[in-house]
Design a protein around this nucleic acid. Structure first.
Lengths: 217, 217
DNA sequence: CAAAAACTTGACTAGTTGGTCAAAATGCAG
DNA sequence: CTGCATTTTGACCAACTAGTCAAGTTTTTG
């Protein structure tokens, strides 16, 4: 994403000042925290403004509608969130590629749980703000990678498995640790915070899925 | 859960009339639809009242607070939702027991997606209304079944696998089809509605997980 | 069938919240 | 330093929403 740094263009409507850049960032960071915790309806502009350290009218000077903040946040998050899938290399070793993908997803769940929750909440409520994204961007990408996996199965490099369901399973499992964090903590208690927990999780998930799809016979 | 059907007890405060029974049911059914779609904050009492076919004051006659409806609904749903886990038989064949469990969960996701979404939404937002349930009821049950699975692993009937992560994986994967239904539809399109879809899903999920935990060597 | 109990609702209130506006404060180019 | 553009905010408003209330209607019961 290029940032335009025009100077003398009188007619250019989208010049971005230093203060704008700082404040938009403050707002979006605050909004991610609040939206991911309380959802769209459960979040008030005042909450975001307070967390961002500015008055509500000032916040509305940068984002005229609450919806604008929310959509901007989702767009900013989604591309990044999907990046690991795009990186799956059709020419690489299947098991190795999927191991890398799952590992990346588990890391993201641990380092950016708010992003995962923001997205989960949106989809859970019917994805009103991103249904276009799902059909126009996500679907083609998944179709492409599903074709790769299907080819791998055809070549006997993976056990026969439906590629779409495999992808869903990886998403579901990895994001579970971010989205259902409270539940995971309620059950596993203090283990969750401990240093090796992420590695232990990755190990368990990788072990089941990779053994589940390793070619047999 | 026993329903008390007292007749002559003057001091009994909890007698339930015919009309009460009907209307509470109407309200809870309507509320499940609305809450599971819009979340707690996103739902208005008027919406529920309209869907239930009664006036708002009348609804509030049965449930004095919005929160009451929500909590009642969660309690009613949760026990039923967890039932399949309780049914795992420590003396049965491990693979067979887990196959049955996964199949039951996929069926529930398909027949009661609203219940799954209601629960998912609650946990996603930090489970404010059911944190007690999680620690006092869910955790002991999971601990018990995890011990069973661990024993199975010890006896060589399952590949070495962390029982908690296995349970999380089953939950995540099966509930994904209810909670992320919009996304699944966006990607798989018209297939989702088709007759054999549930069976195909069950087949794919079972294949990966069961092969992932089948004893090796 | 008459009185009591249970049920129902229109009209209302108080609190919240998304968004406006005009005026003040600040930043910045020449 | 000056004047214009950008930024900031207190005060405000209209819409919405959880919950109340008193007065009516229906159901149950003796």
């Amino acid at each position: 994403m290029a940032r335009a740094e025009r100077k003398k263009l009188k007619e250019a409507p989208e010049k971005t000042t230093r203060i704008q850049e700082i404040n938009r960032r403050l707002i979006l960071d605050a909004a991610l925290d609040i939206f991911s915790t309380y959802g769209f309806r459960g979040t008030t502009i005042d909450q975001i403004a307070e967390r961002a350290g500015m008055s509500k009218p000032n916040l509305l000077y940068y984002f005229p509608r609450k919806q604008n903040i929310y959509v901007t946040l989702l767009e900013e998050t989604l591309t990044e969130w999907l990046a690991p899938l795009a990186e799956i290399d059709a020419e690489g070793d299947p098991i190795e590629q999927l191991r890398k993908y799952i590992t990346l997803k588990i890391n993201m769940s641990e380092t950016h749980p708010e992003a995962s929750r923001l997205f989960a909440n949106e989809v859970l409520h019917g994805a009103p703000a991103i249904s276009d994204f799902l059909t126009k961007y996500l679907k083609p990408l998944v179709d492409e990678k599903a074709a790769v996996i299907r080819r791998w199965v055809g070549e006997g490099k993976l056990a026969p498995v439906d590629p779409y369901h495999l992808i869903f399973m990886i998403w579901a499992t990895t994001q579970h640790y971010a989205d259902f964090d409270v539940q995971v903590r309620a059950i596993m208690g203090s283990q969750v915070g401990r240093p090796g927990f992420k590695e232990q999780t990755a190990q368990a998930v990788l072990s089941i899925i990779l053994n589940g799809i390793r070619p047999r016979d």
